[in-house]
Write a protein that binds this DNA or RNA. Structure first.
Lengths: 119, 119
DNA sequence: CTAAACCTTCACGTCAACGTGAGAGTCAAG
DNA sequence: CTTGACTCTCACGTTGACGTGAAGGTTTAG
């Protein structure tokens, strides 16, 4: 199929699909005209990419991670132990980000609950 | 004092202080030479800005918020009720961001805990 | 008077995943 | 053959709070 159909079947814009290719996440074939040609497997490939993006990984990280991922009918499973390590480490960063936001919220609460004392 | 001293006394870079001015958060006077001249009160002003930035507000929001804030010896208190509303609304956005991160983490956990079933 | 600090205004770089045209080929149907 | 749908490759815009020089005045201690 060509890029338009893949876009329709995955719900991802053509721009994003080209971007994924630019980042090395997809490697469609080409017609002599230059048109990209994708296979059915690419529908699942895009799905994997989206799941990993939703997990907070960058495209650069996904490039590293993809060859180490088993797609068990939509359920992604890590094949390499070092991938598990990387994911756990990434999880820790998310925890940190949550903690930071919680601290930010606490700062805000101090202000909100502060009563302006009259002189 | 000039910008260098204010930077030292607040721990904020000169670039940031100029940026705050550009955003309308500070209004130092000028010498004929163009040099910025700050007063002692600006040390506290910078502290207020920093507190609000740490609370997750943008400089644009801080511009709106500052005239409505009472600095009670370092403890910031909202003077206008609409400011309280704005802060509460902003707090809700932080909650949303935390929820999103938690969802992201949950996505990640599904992958981490997935066992690769052998064929 | 001179050199070291200190200051000024530009103005591009940062970080990421695309959005949004611009200008121009390609292809299938009628 | 034509036209309209489809696709291609650039390449800049988005978002925010600054970082980081560049090129050039100002001030002041000695």
């Amino acid at each position: 199929m060509r890029i338009g159909e893949l876009a329709r079947r995955t719900g991802i814009t053509e721009r994003a699909l080209r971007y994924y290719e630019e980042q090395g996440l997809l490697r469609p074939e080409r017609r002599p005209s230059g048109y990209r040609v994708y296979g059915d497997a690419d529908v699942a490939a895009v799905r994997r990419i989206r799941i990993l993006l939703a997990a907070g990984l960058s495209t650069a990280q996904i490039t590293q991670v993809l060859p180490c991922v088993l797609d068990d009918d939509g359920l992604l499973a890590p094949l390499c132990p070092e991938l598990v390590d990387a994911l756990v480490e990434h999880r820790a960063k998310i925890d940190e980000a949550i903690d930071e936001l919680a601290a930010t919220r606490a700062n805000l609460d101090v202000i909100i609950s502060a009563e302006a004392r009259s002189a």
